[in-house]
Write a protein that binds this DNA or RNA. Sequence first.
RNA 1: CGGGACUUAGCUCAGCCUGGUAGAGCAUCUGCUUUGGGAGCAGAGGGCCGCAUGUUCGAAUCAUGUAGUCCCGACCA
Length: 570
Amino acid sequence: MRVTQSVVKTLREAPAGAELPSHIFLLRGGYVKQLASGLYSIMPFGKRILQKIEVVIREEMNRIDGQEVELPLSQPAELWQESGRYTAVGSELLRFKDRTEHPMVLAMTHEEAVTDMARHYLSSYKQLPFMVYQFQLKFRDEPRSRGGLVRVREFTMKDGYSFHRTDEDLDAYYQRVYTAYERIFQRVGIRPVVVKSDTGIMGGKLAHEFMLETGHGEDYLILARDGSYAANQEIAEFHRETVPESPLPVEKVATPGYKTIEDVSGFLSVDAKKTMKVVLYETEHAKRKTLVMVALRGDLEAGEIKIRNYLKVPWLLPAQDDFIRSFGIVPGYASPVGIAERSDLLILSDLSIAEGNNFVAGANEEGFHLRHVNFRRDFQTPHCGDFAKAVSGHKSPDGKAELHAVRGIEIGNIFKLGTKFSESMNCAYLDESGQHKIPIMGCYGIGVGRLMAAVVENSHDDFGPIWPEEITPFHVHLVAIGKEPEVVEACEKLQAEWDAAGFEVLFDDRDERPGVKFKDADLWGVPVRVAVGKKTLAEGCVEWKLRKDKEHTVVPLSSTSDRLKSHYRK
RNA sequence: CGGGACUUAGCUCAGCCUGGUAGAGCAUCUGCUUUGGGAGCAGAGGGCCGCAUGUUCGAAUCAUGUAGUCCCGACCA
């Protein structure tokens, strides 16, 4: 490919708003062009990379017996009503009507479509297990797209779905996918951190996310430094250290105007760890507006995902003061002491409170707190569990390792779905004894464009991306220095020779100064750069430079094909 | 959905405070010169100053509204 014939334009400066290295370089290198918020046009160089990423993923999916399919992007709403997601998912699901006023959606994932396919195909246990996968657009009407290609509204995803007779069979296959994912990420040069992740309110038993650790990530991961623990912060567990004390009598103290944990602990000279924080949410539980009171140790923060998962509710909002007061609870001095659970008032107690003693808690009276509040003696609730957020400095659940929080980009996920979709959508088969059985499903996703962005985050310098050999848009970047006939002729001969040897050659034949070409070479990130200039050519030599190295070497022109072969191990 | 900012040439931005009809650098086109890390000179093309309404003799500039974009947070099967 000649640069003069390529549909590519580089930018000297980053467009306003681009902050992540991947965003800046993908725009500056002419790989992608933003069309609107969260919508990107992929230009030829970007498309070449995406296609190669798809090749890598396809090879690894086929290796674990996946079969490629393609499922529609636009789907009738009925399909989503069957699974229950039509109402369970919010505005992220784009709903529209077709020409005949039929309600439709743009798929955000393809569980419904694949389950529909499976229920028509599947009739006998003899057909199980199987896995199908596709590369297909997803549309998610993100409330906030950001970070260039990291979080977009429309994107191509590799999504795979497996069907099994037993949990054991799913477990075994899940492990194979896990291994396939490790191979995929290794081939694009990424060493992911694998964390346990939230399975959401749609059900499912176990899920892992493959994360690229990067300061620019949008997820927070909780990791043990010794590798013994890794989880998404949303669900990360931790060990609560408590020193048992004997309960002391409750004592009411005046704390005029002191409402926050910081104020109260300062005023009463007690450690925040000896205070009780009460966080109040409102939600819809059992079909009515419900107040959720969560009691935590003062130094902890509420873990909203944990609370939502415990209550099996899709959302929590900070409770309004009026609503709080209607239960006799006083904002700023709130406490579960003296408050009884009702059908529309749930009291949750974090383990830190249940296992500790003698907390300073609100008195539900303006200007007063209580000393020495103890769980069970002073208040009770059956809802006792892990409702706090793990942060840096906490101990891992076994109490042995220190945890720390890092940011990461999710580049893949695997999920034991269970029978959520197969059951609601009547996907069944007959077993040996003629009994109807529901297949157990797993699903497995990788965002292709996001992975390209993640590769740049993972592999770049100050001047541009450094593409891994497996997914580079070209194998070798041939740069003509000057336009002397002998230089042009030598370049054309080299291009033809390398083409014939099966290498993808990018030939910069532009009438540009060397500096311009070298800057662009850095933005295009091709692993091998060969520069042909008059001086070295007179000695039968060219310049050989690897993108990852700073310096070039002068090598015989005749050796370049062999060098390429050995570089690419062909 | 909250909080903040921005919107002027293909890109990055100045001009706005103090109203008088549009600027720079880069990019593009022409010519010359130059040729090893985004050269120089001369010339040319390119603008509903996001949109709407208002104030004014006159609005890129002031006011109100609205849309788009970006950042932080919420949300994220």
